[in-house]
Design a protein around this nucleic acid. Structure first.
Lengths: 169, 169
DNA sequence: ACCTAATAATTCGTGCACGAAGTAAATAAC
DNA sequence: GTTATTTACTTCGTGCACGAATTATTAGGT
């Protein structure tokens, strides 16, 4: 069922044949689209994602936050620190387990939700209208499957077959 | 044809409803998958993308390189500088137009192609086998459409409808 | 020729994103 | 109960990625 495309390994090095590159480009471009929309709220894109979780789920540990966004906890720490400096949230040690740090929205952080609520709809409409809402929907579910695959395979690495590059040729 | 999902703006703030978040996560995760594969070659992921273009198309200006990868030229400059330091390429002013800087592979950069040629096939197979090759193919074309849309709309900004958030409610 | 765009690359400052190493607290081992 | 191990977060160093401001060069207007 798969159409017989070239199996010359060199052909695979074409930028257009890769899946990774469009994803990389799309992610960067989306970040660039979000920037002017989030600037009035004083949020970066990563900070916006943190807010989405806090608005939806309430107080949460730093590690859980990082896990939810599929980023390293070493990346999360400075993000929530800056957000604390902005008065959006508080960071406190868990009294029952001093290793955990609980992140909580301040009232200022809570109230920001009102200003943010129009953003996803506006973007979703704009993209959906031009790309086709069904295309966007399929894209969303496919990418989520890919994310699920990649994040589970970070335990049993996906590239483990590489150490023996071409057994025989 | 579109199924009637909630139009409550607050519902749209759910992390699972967003298209942008899976793309962000997928891009980060893919970068993490590529890292150990590219480390033996001494390349970062962005540097790998630059190499793909140079292998495929030969000498190119810094600006064109940035445009091809949909990143800012201010991001490109330090990348090619580091690659020059590694002896992978040369940077020279264009004699016919001193504003342009031409990037060329060195022989060392050329020869790296041999070591890289197995990488995309290995990943493509691993992901395709688990996600379905047809799913991956559909994903690839959809994301490319999205990229095309986003990059053209950066001239006529996509978020232009936002300055009037809710005309009336 | 001269003065003004426009263009190409770079520099600057901020914020992610990562792996590796470090610190401190809770748990296990014995 | 003291020592080892695990867990949660932080610190550190490198490399992107961006917008804004600079510099250098070319192209246009008169």
């Amino acid at each position: 069922m798969k159409k017989a495309q070239s199996h010359d390994p060199y052909d695979m090095l074409g930028l257009d044949r890769q899946l990774c590159f469009p994803l990389y480009a799309a992610s960067n471009l989306l970040g660039r689209v979000y920037r002017p929309l989030l600037e009035p709220l004083g949020l970066t894109y990563s900070q916006y994602l943190v807010m989405l979780i806090l608005w939806e789920e309430g107080p949460i540990h730093v590690g859980a936050l990082a896990q939810r966004l599929h980023i390293d906890s070493a990346t999360m720490t400075p993000i929530v620190k800056r957000m604390q400096d902005q008065g959006l949230l508080t960071r406190n040690r868990d009294r029952s387990d001093q290793r955990h740090v609980i992140v909580r929205l301040t009232s200022r952080g809570q109230s920001l939700k009102d200003q943010a609520k129009e953003i996803p709809q506006a973007l979703s409409d704009q993209i959906g209208d031009r790309l086709g809402h069904d295309v966007v929907e399929g894209l969303r579910t496919s990418v989520r499957k890919l994310v699920a695959l990649l994040s589970e395979d970070l335990n049993t690495p996906i590239g483990v077959a590489l150490p023996t590059p071409t057994p025989l040729k």
